[in-house]
């Protein structure tokens, strides 16, 4: 976290949501109140819901501040768009996003990187898997602002110099795809597995993609493709232990 880059236009450390625990000047409380109301209004909850949520938020903020021995000091964003810089596939890109934007939405809608798919939008299917500093994450469950300062790799960034990543090539060879909608997420997860564990067992592959759902039933060929890249011989997918 300490290496994280700040949004290009906001040099104040407090401006970075990832660094809210740093020392920084106390914000103007009135402005903060406005911001919070604005945020809640933007979220479109009903009047009753607003009161409830606002109470909850105040409570949690105060509780948080108390545990830290601070009075306040969290800079808030929104509901209006904020300019941030995301490092995607090796390139720094400035995007103007609503603070509530997920990383998946920022990639797909703002950067046009539509290879990342959104299926369940709540972290149950992993179709939206991207790498954050080489770790596979669900981009639908990650705020874009939380990716600031981290290296984001999407399916579009996996090929090097026009050459498919070995996992991509093996997926094609083994026909480890049908409709193709889970495929980018599967490829990201399997490539991340091999980075971490170059000689996985089939059980390792099953575990790695346990969160990735496929409805066409490509699993057996995904196991075979990934194991082939690892040079692990598995002519037939073996039954689980």
């Amino acid at each position: 976290m300490s290496e994280a880059k700040l949004p290009a236009d906001q040099k104040d450390p407090a401006a970075d949501p990832l660094h809210s625990d740093r020392d920084h000047p106390v914000e103007n409380k009135a402005a903060k109140g406005m911001t919070r109301r604005g945020f809640l209004k933007g979220a479109g909850v009903t009047a009753a819901g607003t009161a409830l949520l606002e109470g909850a938020q105040v409570f949690s903020r105060e509780a948080l501040a108390a545990t830290r021995g601070e009075v306040s000091g969290v800079k808030e964003y929104g509901p209006g768009p904020v300019q941030v810089s995301l490092q995607v596939n090796g390139k720094e890109q400035n995007v103007l996003i609503e603070p509530r934007s997920t990383l998946a939405d920022a990639l797909r809608l703002d950067l046009g990187l539509t290879g990342t798919k959104v299926v369940c939008d709540r972290g149950a299917c992993s179709a939206c898997t991207v790498l954050l500093d080489n770790v596979p994450i669900n981009s639908c469950m990650t705020l874009a602002m939380d990716a600031v300062g981290h290296r984001v790799t999407t399916i579009e960034g996996l090929a090097k110099d026009g050459e498919m990543h070995p996992v991509q090539a093996a997926f094609v060879k083994h026909d480890a795809l049908q409709c193709g909608f889970c495929t980018p997420g599967m490829v990201m997860t399997c490539s991340a597995l091999l980075e971490k564990n170059p000689k996985p067992t089939e059980e390792d592959v099953r575990t790695a993609i346990a969160g990735n759902l496929c409805r066409c039933g490509t699993y057996p060929k995904i196991f075979a493709a990934t194991l082939e890249v690892a040079g692990v011989s598995s002519p037939e997918v073996t039954p689980k232990a």
């Binding site: 290879g115 399916i155 579009e156 498919m164 991509q168 997926f171 495929t183 980018p184």
Partner: peptide, 9 residues
């Protein structure tokens, strides 16, 4: 297949 594994589809 290439279009689908590369996110270009």
């Amino acid at each position: 297949g290439h279009a689908k594994v590369s996110g270009q589809a």
